[in-house]
């Protein structure tokens, strides 16, 4: 339940959307206060503009304010390992995994969100960890964007946002682009700068492999139609499970026909038998790859000038 009547204001959870450091100064808030009388000393405290949890659409403006972040949309059917991938990245950064000298972790405004995602993969004494729990479709803020900042080459700072959304959204969207329960998926596809499309090896080798194949083909088709030239990486998750070559071929074929020029990577939480670093397989490589993706350059159409006045000819070709 929102306390403030202003649409985009989530005070007192975050700072006042109209910029009042003290809520007492905000005309919208004081009118509310008559209803809620217990907030007497809130005026002397500053509320932080970020809550630490995964960012919602309104919260975004705090991060996007300093520079445009790269938004990576992670797409895939339910249980394909999207959230596990994020959790693994966070844990690897937390343990100082080598993601190359070019990028140094430089902060995150969604640390609690990352922690929540990684929680179920962490060991607490006596309890075996599991892969992250299902991302629920309920809750408006549930969609969540997770933020990471990296300093590149010790110089420039880059912000990244990773979407953490339930697979059901994408399944609905693949079937019906205008489905009301695919609103979140449409938002991600509209706004992301690059995509990671997950193909679940466990599902493609399991009992329902036929429908798993169909689901990813359908999703690739829909993504292809909405791609607008943005980079797509096909990621085989849970790659410790062997998938029949013919099955891999048909998925790859479907993706390449819809999303030409895609890249392909393989990840697994299981490390190769001879590896003792405990970094899984391909996870750091995929993170490195993702951090190097660049936004498409916009090409402005050249200006054609017919005038003879030198002022209007400036810069024309």
């Amino acid at each position: 339940m929102k306390a403030c009547s202003v649409e985009d204001c989530f005070a007192p959870d975050t700072t006042c959307a109209h910029g009042h450091l003290s809520l007492k100064d905000c005309p919208n808030w004081t009118s509310q206060e008559k209803i809620d009388s217990k907030s007497s000393d809130e005026g002397t405290e500053i509320v932080l503009p970020w809550s630490g949890s995964a960012l919602g659409r309104t919260d975004l403006s705090f991060v996007t304010g300093r520079r445009t972040p790269m938004m990576i949309g992670i797409l895939g059917p339910e249980n394909a390992g999207k959230t596990s991938l994020l959790a693994a990245w966070y844990l690897l950064i937390g343990r100082g995994a080598n993601i190359g000298n070019r990028h140094t972790f430089s902060g995150s405004f969604t640390l609690s969100g990352w922690e929540a995602v990684a929680r179920s993969m962490q060991w607490t004494p006596g309890t075996p960890p599991e892969f992250p729990a299902h991302t629920s479709t309920r809750g408006v803020r549930g969609q969540g964007l997770l933020h990471l900042a990296f300093r590149e080459d010790g110089n420039r700072l880059r912000d990244y946002l990773f979407t953490d959304a339930p697979g059901l959204w994408f399944q609905r969207w693949a079937i019906n682009e205008q489905a009301p329960d695919a609103k979140g998926a449409r938002w991600i596809v509209d706004n992301a700068d690059a995509f990671i499309l997950t193909a679940d090896c466990a599902a493609l080798a399991g009992d329902d492999k036929g429908s798993a194949r169909a689901a990813i083909q359908l999703l690739a088709r829909r993504l292809g139609a909405n791609r607008r030239g943005r980079p797509v990486t096909l990621v085989w998750t849970k790659s410790d499970i062997t998938v029949a070559e013919s099955m891999k071929f048909s998925v790859r074929d479907a993706v390449s026909s819809q999303v030409p020029g895609f890249e392909e990577m393989t990840v697994s939480m299981q490390a190769p038998a001879d590896d003792s670093h405990g970094q899984g397989t391909g996870l750091t490589a995929l993170l490195k790859h993702t951090l190097q993706i660049r936004r498409l350059k916009q090409v402005l159409s050249p200006s054609h000038v017919n005038a003879t006045d030198a002022l209007f000819l400036f810069g024309a070709r």
Binding site: L91, Q122, W123, F131, M269, Q270, A271, L283
Partner: peptide
């Protein structure tokens, strides 16, 4: 401290 996790201590070793 940094806790152990699924990657640093795989399930097989459980």
């Amino acid at each position: 401290r940094v806790s152990d996790d699924l990657l640093s201590k795989p399930l097989a070793r459980l």
